[in-house]
Amino acid sequence: MSTGEHTHGSVWLRPARTPRAAKGQAFTRDDLASSAVALADRDGLEVVSMRRVAADLGITAMSLYWYIDTKDQLLELMVDRVFAEQRPTSGDDWRSRLRSIGRDTLELYRAHPWFVHALGRPGPLPGPGQLRHWNDHVRALTDPAITPRLAPQDVTLAVGTIKSFVTGYALNPATAVLTPYAGHPQIDQYLRDTVLGNGLDGLLSVAGLRHRFTEDRFDSGLEIVLDGVHARLFGGAGS
């Protein structure tokens, strides 16, 4: 089958090939993914290309086409590689296990800042790492050892709600942009002047202006979302 026949397909539909030596070294798809993830972590997703990954591996870009056909397929490998990093869900009950999923997802986003943006790409199929990731969630939340446990049809709702919150938090400029500058005098002055100069009475009524912009509100927000999940599935807020 020629390379062109795979061009618009998922990497998971492309038959895996036996590693072929390039410059005396044989590489696997996982090697390509690991190199690309390291590159994106270091320099950003926008710099990832077949040529750059090949250069980091010390081979020619053409050598990569033995394993993949397009950059989109490389991104699929990268996303699946990161999914495979997430720790198994932990906790003694459904709420603590959902909390674990939320916190671990945020850790992945922080470890790989490009990852949340790569997830927004349409079309790619879930790979083995992502499927194992989902399987872990389903098993953890439908475990007969926890009471109450979630019905299988409720797992997607619960996990999807938690991950939507985490994704929104990760993409929120107030947490992704302003937080690193907490306490910077120019930021404080800008916020103060903007609020006072524009008569923003609502913000004036809030004690601790900078605190409102820079406080890490993830844990409290996550608990509110968990209360909502409990109310939807079991009735009441829970704890």
Rank of each mutant, 00 (worst) to 15 (best):
residue 191 L to G: 04
residue 199 G to M: 00
residue 191 L to M: 08
residue 180 P to W: 12
residue 187 I to F: 03
residue 164 S to E: 14
residue 158 A to P: 03
residue 211 H to E: 10
residue 197 G to P: 02
residue 161 T to Y: 11
residue 188 D to F: 11
residue 219 D to Y: 06
residue 216 D to L: 06
residue 182 A to H: 05
residue 219 D to Q: 00
residue 203 L to M: 07
residue 197 G to N: 01
residue 216 D to S: 07
residue 197 G to T: 05
residue 214 T to S: 03
residue 202 G to A: 10
residue 166 V to M: 10
residue 193 D to W: 01
residue 172 N to W: 06
residue 217 R to H: 10
residue 188 D to Y: 10
residue 208 G to R: 06
residue 157 L to E: 15
residue 158 A to S: 13
residue 188 D to L: 06
residue 167 T to M: 09
residue 190 Y to T: 13
residue 216 D to E: 12
residue 165 F to Y: 12
residue 213 F to K: 01
residue 195 V to Y: 02
residue 173 P to R: 11
residue 207 A to F: 08
residue 212 R to C: 11
residue 188 D to C: 07
residue 187 I to K: 00
residue 160 G to K: 13
residue 165 F to W: 10
residue 218 F to G: 00
residue 175 T to M: 11
residue 213 F to H: 00
residue 208 G to C: 04
residue 169 Y to V: 13
residue 166 V to T: 13
residue 169 Y to C: 01
residue 187 I to G: 00
residue 173 P to W: 14
residue 196 L to N: 07
residue 200 L to N: 06
residue 213 F to S: 02
residue 200 L to W: 14
residue 175 T to D: 12
residue 186 Q to G: 07
residue 175 T to G: 10
residue 215 E to N: 00
residue 172 N to F: 08
residue 212 R to K: 10
residue 165 F to M: 02
residue 182 A to K: 01
residue 207 A to Y: 09
residue 212 R to Y: 13
residue 182 A to T: 12
residue 186 Q to Y: 14
residue 162 I to L: 10
residue 188 D to V: 14
residue 173 P to F: 13
residue 206 V to M: 05
residue 215 E to L: 05
residue 162 I to G: 00
residue 209 L to G: 02
residue 157 L to A: 15
residue 167 T to G: 09
residue 164 S to C: 11
residue 183 G to N: 04
residue 202 G to H: 08
residue 189 Q to E: 12
residue 194 T to V: 15
residue 185 P to K: 15
residue 209 L to D: 06
residue 172 N to V: 06
residue 198 N to G: 05
residue 170 A to T: 09
residue 215 E to F: 08
residue 205 S to C: 08
residue 215 E to G: 05
residue 167 T to E: 11
residue 206 V to C: 05
residue 170 A to L: 01
residue 162 I to W: 09
residue 200 L to K: 01
residue 210 R to M: 10
residue 162 I to F: 13
residue 209 L to S: 06
residue 187 I to D: 01
residue 187 I to V: 11
residue 201 D to T: 14
residue 170 A to D: 04
residue 197 G to V: 08
residue 169 Y to I: 14
residue 209 L to F: 09
residue 193 D to N: 04
residue 194 T to D: 09
residue 163 K to N: 13
residue 197 G to F: 01
residue 176 A to D: 03
residue 190 Y to F: 14
residue 200 L to P: 05
residue 176 A to E: 00
residue 163 K to L: 15
